[in-house]
Amino acid sequence: MIKEQYLQQLWGQLSKVPEPQRRELMFDYEDHFRIAAEHGRSEEEAARELGDPQVIARELMLSYRVVEAENGGGVVRVSKAVLATVGLGFFNLIFVLGPYIALLGVLLAFWAVSVALGILAAGVMYEGIFGQGIPLLQASFMAMTALGIGMLAGVGTHKLTRSVFKITLKYLRFNSRVMGGRDK
């Protein structure tokens, strides 16, 4: 009875993990109850020594999210991995989520600058062709300069974004290694 409840709770907590992988994760815990019984221990004892299924689910979710993000970055997956650490403690809320949001803000600002330079180039060209303010030749040089700087900024920001994500995931790994495991 306790075994069923425990496993069901864990299964429910892991609902975000695709089923084949979830079965694989659950196997260890099913085994645990079974082998504990073979060693003559009650289900209560087995459940108690396993600890809170919610905590176990969080630990498993974190490593699942980190691996998922590593296999194909993207801001959504990396952010999900970062959010998964928050469930593991207050420390992570301040020392992981906080800096991560700050970094995202900085990246967003760089992206905005790159896009703005592109828009500026388009605007100057438009003014050169259809407007009276700037002669066409001058406008094309200005536009080319703005576009050039904008593209450089874009490439730079793209690289920066990649490395921020990579370092974030590395840190999460390091973090989960250091934080992983808890007392009885």
Binding site: L25, D28, Y29, D31, H32, I35, A36, E49, L50, G51, D52, P53, V55, I56, E59, L60, S63, S176, R177, G180, G181, R182, D183, K184
Partner: peptide, 27 residues
């Protein structure tokens, strides 16, 4: 070794919940 064996061995030496050893094995 099988999971249970590892979990019990580690938790008896390190005063750590058996349940935490499995996520470690998974990682």
């Amino acid at each position: 070794r099988y999971g249970y064996e590892l979990a019990v061995a580690i938790s008896s030496k390190f005063e750590m919940a058996v349940g935490s050893v499995y996520p470690l094995l998974n990682r």
